[in-house]
């Protein structure tokens, strides 16, 4: 298995955020973690990318245990994290934001290639290339955050709530782009509250409830599961 999380537990002080969770992702897949607010979805991504240190567990990526790697080392392994709330570099231009996305590469051709790929997926960013990131709209910021993750041409892209605060049309647009990114070979770990959209594009899914995985399976099966339907799809 390419990315394998085993028995992962994380706590913030006295509060247990994740309790012994295990899940996995095969190369080329879109896997989604769905769940309500406070279920621990963001904590999972932050732990994988090294921003939070877990109490116990293992995180295997490409046959390497990356649990104790520093965050910047993990980025170097080809795991790009698009954090919750987009977190742009607000006073820097769109171009400088994207250049920082490719911070770990010194290869000029590689960066140019990454930039042109990204501009193909997000032509809007090209129009705004000189604009400070802080002046972009919510949708553009989400595009910028994803583009910044993609410039380094990662193997695994981790997206934290890309639909947050966006209009339904924009959400559709973003999810189409996610599908395109995946079909060009990038594996995706998607964390979402918008279960319907997430389950529609994912191949497999895990349901997270207060720090535990309560359901798992193929995305289309979960889409028809009565428990998921009543809890997350509003039917």
């Amino acid at each position: 298995m390419w990315l394998k999380i085993e028995n992962l537990s994380v706590s913030y002080g006295m509060i247990k955020a994740l309790n012994n969770i295990s899940f996995e992702l095969k190369q080329g897949e879109i896997v989604t973690l769905i769940g309500a607010n406070g279920a621990g979805k963001t904590t999972v991504l932050n732990t994988i990318s090294g921003l939070i240190k877990p109490n116990q567990g293992t995180i295997i990526f490409n046959q390497k245990n990356i649990l104790n790697f520093a965050a910047h080392k993990i980025a170097g392994l080809g795991i790009a994290h698009v954090p919750e709330g987009r977190k742009p570099f607000p006073n820097l231009s769109v171009y400088e934001n994207l250049r920082l996305g490719a911070y770990l590469s010194n290869d000029k051709d590689f960066i140019t290639q990454g930039l042109s790929k990204v501009f193909k997926s997000f032509p809007r960013l090209h129009e705004r290339i000189k604009q400070p990131a802080g002046t972009l709209s919510g949708g553009e910021l989400q595009m910028l955050a994803m583009a910044r993750g993609l410039v380094s041409q990662p193997n695994l892209l981790m997206l934290d709530e890309p639909s947050m605060g966006l209009s339904p049309i924009l959400v559709n647009e973003i999810f189409n782009i996610i599908k395109d990114i995946n079909s060009s070979g990038t594996s995706i770990l998607l964390v979402e509250q918008n279960a319907n959209m997430a389950l529609n594009i994912a191949s497999r899914a895990y349901v997270l409830e207060t720090g535990k995985i309560t359901l798992e399976g193929n995305a289309c099966d979960l889409l028809n599961d009565p428990r998921v339907k009543s809890a997350y799809l509003g039917e």
Binding site: H72, A80, P88, F89
Partner: peptide, 11 residues
């Protein structure tokens, strides 16, 4: 600009 984001891009 943003410490978390800069860690995430590998700084």
């Amino acid at each position: 600009e943003d410490e978390i984001a800069s860690e995430a891009v590998g700084v």
